[in-house]
Simulated assay, not measured.
Amino acid sequence: MIIDNNKIILLQDKLDEAAMLYYEQKDGKLKYLDCLEAITKAFLNEEDLDNEEIVHILSELDQIDFNSEEVRQAILYLIIKGFKHQHLPLDTITPDRIGVICAHLIDALFEGKDKVYLMDLNLGTGNLVYTINNYSDLELYLMGIENNETMIKVAQIFSEMMMQDVQIYFQDALKDNFPQVDLVIADVDSDEYHSDTYESELTKLNINYFPYLLIEKHQYSGDEDTQFMFIVPNDFFSQKGSDEFKKAISENLEMVALIVLPETMFVDPSLAKSILIMQKQKQGEKRIPVSVFNLPSISDQEAFITMITEIKKELKERRFH
Rank of each mutant, 00 (worst) to 15 (best):
N6F: 10
L11A: 09
Q12V: 01
D13W: 08
D16G: 04
D16V: 02
E24V: 04
K31T: 11
Y32A: 04
D34A: 10
I39F: 06
N45Y: 09
N45A: 07
E53K: 15
L58Q: 09
S59D: 14
S59H: 13
S59F: 13
S68R: 14
R72A: 06
Q73K: 15
Y77M: 08
L78R: 11
L78V: 11
I80L: 12
I80T: 04
K84Q: 12
K84Y: 09
H85F: 13
Q86P: 02
H87C: 02
H87A: 07
T92V: 12
T92R: 09
I101N: 08
I106R: 00
D107K: 04
K115F: 02
V116Q: 10
L118V: 15
L123E: 10
L123Y: 07
T125Y: 01
T125E: 00
G126W: 14
Y135R: 08
Y135F: 15
Y135M: 02
D137C: 09
D137F: 09
G144F: 02
I145M: 06
M151I: 07
V154N: 05
M162D: 07
D165E: 12
V166K: 11
Q167L: 14
Y169S: 11
Y169W: 11
K175C: 02
Q180E: 13
V181P: 04
I185E: 03
D189E: 11
S190Y: 03
T197P: 00
T197C: 02
E199Y: 06
K204S: 04
N206F: 00
Y209C: 04
F210M: 13
Y212V: 10
D225F: 07
T226K: 07
N234I: 04
D235K: 10
K240Q: 05
G241C: 04
D243N: 12
I249Q: 06
I249W: 06
I249R: 05
E251I: 05
N252I: 04
A257G: 00
K280V: 11
R287S: 13
I288W: 03
V290Q: 06
V292D: 01
N294V: 08
L295C: 06
L295I: 10
E310R: 14
I311G: 01
K312E: 14
L315I: 06
K316M: 14
H321Q: 07
